[in-house]
Structure formats: C-alpha cells, structure tokens
C-alpha cells in the first residue's frame, strides 16, 4: 500500500463511521418523536457535537491530502466526493437533531390516524433505508446499490407533496390538533430534505466510481 492509499483508507473509515452515527441519529429521532422520549431526544442533541467534530476532522484530512499528495484521477474524484458526502451527512445530522427537538417541544404525541394517513412511518422507513443503501454502496463501491435511492426519493417527494392536503383536512375536522400537525408537517419537510441529501450522496458515489456527473442533468443540457 502506498502512503496515499493508507490515507485514503483512513478517510473511508472515518466517513463510514460518520454515516453510521448519522443513521443512528435518524433512527433515534423517530423513537424520540413517536414515543415522546425526552431522554433519547437529549442524547441525539448531545451526539450532534460528535458529528460536527467528525465533519471538521474529515475536512481537515481532505485538505491535507490535497496539499501533500496532489491526488489525480480516481483518487481526486474520491476526495472530492468525500468532501461533499461529509457536508451532506452533517446536514442530515442537523435535520435529525431538529426532529428530536420537536420531541422536547411537543406536549402530546401526534394523532395516530393522522400519522397513518400521511404515511409518516413509511417516510421514515424510506429515509433510513436510503441511508442504508448509500452506506452499503459506499463500502462496497457498488453504484448499483447506491442507485436504489433514486426511486425511493421519488416516493418521498410524493408523500411530501400530498401531506399539506391531508393535514389540512384533518385540522379542519379537529382544530385541537393544529399544533402537533404543524410540527408533523415540519418533520415531513425535514425527511424530504434528508431524502434529497441522501440522493446527493448516491450521486457522489457514482461520480467517484464511474466518473459520471448526474447532478443538474437537465440544467446542463439546457446550457449546451
């Protein structure tokens, strides 16, 4: 192994660690919200410090590799993708923390029938599943697995699009649930963002391995 390969291997390990922590945060935020568990919510908020520290350390490692090794070709694409994945993961961590904070602010848990109607659980399940896909795709450098997120992201977008109508129908019938419904709506928006960020990660994995740029495909076509 060359010195550079050792550095890249360490970077890969650090990102996998970050991915695991972020996924864990997201899973816990679901528990915190649904069972109104303030202890878990506090734990998530506390863990956020760790994610931020890890983000800074990965950024610094990338900077050092750029400065000391002048990476090219697949190594260059790897570091570029790591930089972006790192920042996307940190933002997913922020969003999970945001969801956990609602568990502290909410006085009563959201109505169960509303949760079912807006496909809340399905949405959570999808985002966690998408994170699993990018983690596995990243570890095994397998773009086929990473590509599985694209379909799932579309479902998330649809759920997000349907949610305002469903929620307003519920609120009209029972104005008492305005507050938890607003919180819920906010969580749905956050989960939709998490889907987008996870999709970005999948695109970065594909860029690293296949050297293909999938981002803003339509915009690039228009410019041409």
């Amino acid at each position: 192994m060359t010195h550079l390969e050792i550095e890249l291997e360490q970077l890969k390990k650090a990102i996998i660690e970050m991915m695991d922590i972020v996924k864990n945060q997201l899973e816990k935020s679901r528990t915190a919200l649904l069972s109104m568990d303030t202890d878990i919510a506090q734990e998530i908020i506390h863990n956020e410090i760790r994610i931020n520290a890890l983000e800074l350390s990965i950024d610094r490692d990338c900077e050092n590799i750029f400065a000391l090794f002048n990476p090219v070709a697949i190594d260059l694409r790897f570091i570029l993708s790591i930089l972006k994945i790192n920042s996307d993961l940190e933002r997913i961590g922020d969003l999970a923390e945001g969801i956990a904070k609602f568990a502290l602010e909410l006085e009563s848990s959201p109505p169960k029938n509303l949760l079912t109607e807006i496909r809340f659980n399905e949405m959570f399940e999808l985002t966690i599943n998408m994170l699993d896909n990018v983690i596995e795709g990243f570890i095994h450098e397998d773009t086929k697995i990473a590509r599985q997120v694209f379909k799932k992201d579309k479902i998330l977008n649809q759920i997000n699009k349907d949610s305002p109508g469903t929620i307003s129908d519920f609120v009209e019938k029972d104005p008492e649930i305005i507050k938890p419904s607003l919180y819920l709506f906010s969580v749905i928006r956050k989960l939709e963002r998490i889907g987008d960020l996870t999709k970005n990660i999948a695109e970065d994995i594909i860029f690293h391995i296949e050297a293909k740029v999938l981002k803003h495909k339509n915009a690039v076509k228009k410019i041409k």
Binding site: A73, R77, A211
Partner: peptide
C-alpha cells in the same frame, strides 16, 4: 487524462 483516464494502466 488527469481526472478520468480511459486506460487502467494510465490510471
């Protein structure tokens, strides 16, 4: 060549 060489030997 320096971002995405076609040949594995070059890479």
């Amino acid at each position: 060549i320096f971002t995405n060489p076609a040949n594995e030997k070059t890479e």
